[in-house]
């Protein structure tokens, strides 16, 4: 089967609407298709990978730990827009340390999150062949 560049653009906060959860469900299923997968986090989407999420008060499942498992599915390109973080008073330290293991380098742990500027994000999006927007 042909390999294409798939991009999942996450724009919404993790709770409040179901978009983030159902986007993650697509990413996990898609991993079985052995495509080249990237995720983008822009606008309120940056909150999806924020540290210390606690849903006790809202009766919803806290699915944030699932992002840490993405590396096991060879999903290790998580692009986060710098301006979206800044506009919300967030920095790289506010994000979960999502890692993946590089089997070509003796399973060395490497960070999956890459913070990029808005202009860089535009270039990354332009390179994609299939883009899903959530």
């Amino acid at each position: 089967m042909a390999t294409k560049k798939f991009m999942y653009v996450n724009r919404k906060a993790p709770y409040g609407t179901v978009y983030a959860l159902e986007s993650l469900e697509v990413v996990l299923i898609a991993a079985a298709f052995e495509q080249e997968v990237s995720l983008a986090f822009i606008d309120d989407g940056v909150y999806q990978i924020a540290k210390g999420q606690n849903t006790d008060g809202i009766g919803m499942k806290n699915f944030s730990s699932t992002y840490n498992a993405l590396g096991d599915y060879e999903v290790n390109k998580l692009y986060v827009e710098k301006e979206s973080l800044e506009e919300r008073g967030l920095t790289a330290d506010d994000l979960m340390p999502i890692m993946w293991e590089d089997e070509d380098e003796d399973w060395a742990e490497k960070p999956s999150v890459r913070i990029v500027s808005r202009a860089e994000m535009a270039d990354i999006l332009a390179e994609q062949e299939v883009t899903y927007s959530f």
Partner: peptide, 20 residues
């Protein structure tokens, strides 16, 4: 059917267009 149908569509088609 399952989400695989969406991914297959992305692979097989020239363009994927999302309405939302």
């Amino acid at each position: 059917s399952g989400l695989g149908q969406l991914i297959e569509g992305g692979i097989q088609s020239d363009r994927t267009v999302v309405f939302g």
